[in-house]
């Protein structure tokens, strides 16, 4: 906002140098004064609005994240944010620091009311029909499987692609979707993949919605891409997810 008056200064000589204007010209000082005044008033309003809404916006974002995690892990009562480092370790993210180190993957550990680990929630995204489909999936360490998904954001066609939220047969894929790792813990034993509607035979396959194959595939790919990176780092470190 404050650079408004300084950028306007460069324009002024042109306005002054235009002599053919019939109505009297405004003095340079008046233009600068008005622009300066407007910039000052507007600056105050914007900073005031930002400061006034900061807490509410932050609280809203936290509630939205919590709600998304609670949806995929129904037993959860509280959550903590972690990052999985590229080297393999996991570390808790404090309330203050928001910056995530490069290459690290963010995930949430969810705890039930007794403080026991109820599950892990992580985000994934893949290109859908219209735009990136971003999903949150819940992971259960006991069965090494996905136990629920929720959509974080998408712009898929209403009535077609957005069936991934409502279609019961499709959501049934994610009650026990296999995410077991290879013996050496380097990657998933089986790639999670969407298959043509009705041809699902294995626990790591996603039965696509007929007519919404591209969106279904995006969900499968989002889980796969995220889990391929996160699970090899997470599984050896599950004991570090104890609540503080």
């Amino acid at each position: 906002m404050s650079d408004q008056s300084s950028s306007e200064k460069k324009v002024i000589p042109i306005a002054v140098a235009a002599p053919e204007a019939a109505p009297p010209e405004s003095p340079t000082g008046a233009m600068i004064r008005t622009l300066g005044l407007v910039s000052a008033i507007c600056g105050l309003i914007i900073v005031g609005a930002y400061q006034g809404t900061y807490d509410a916006v932050a609280a809203n974002k936290r509630i939205a994240t919590e709600r998304a995690v609670f949806k995929v892990i129904p037993a959860a009562k509280s959550i903590a944010e972690f990052v999985a480092q590229p080297g393999g370790g996991v570390s808790k993210v404090g309330a203050g620091d928001t910056a995530i180190p490069p290459g690290a993957v963010k995930f949430f550990a969810a705890y039930d009311e007794t403080g026991k680990l109820a599950g892990i929630a992580a985000e994934g995204g893949a290109k859908g029909y219209a735009d990136t489909v971003r999903i949150m999936f819940g992971y259960q360490p006991d069965c090494q499987c996905v136990v629920g998904i929720g959509v974080v954001s998408m712009r898929e066609t209403p009535g077609i692609g957005d069936k991934i939220i409502t279609d019961k047969d499709f959501l049934a894929n994610f009650t026990a979707l296999d995410l077991k790792l290879k013996a050496d813990l380097s990657a998933l034993a089986n790639e999670v993949k969407a298959v043509k509607h009705g041809s699902k035979t294995n626990a790591w396959q996603v039965d696509a919605i007929s007519g919404a194959t591209i969106t279904s595939r995006a969900v499968g790919k989002a889980i796969n891409d995220s889990a391929q990176v996160l699970m090899p780092r997470l599984v050896p470190n599950l004991d570090k997810l104890k609540p503080s």
Partner: peptide, 19 residues
């Protein structure tokens, strides 16, 4: 001043939109 009125309007409008 009429020379800078559009700039003034846009700054004012953008301010309230941000709010």
């Amino acid at each position: 001043p009429k020379e800078v009125r559009i700039a003034v309007y846009i700054v004012i409008i953008a301010t309230f939109v941000t709010a």
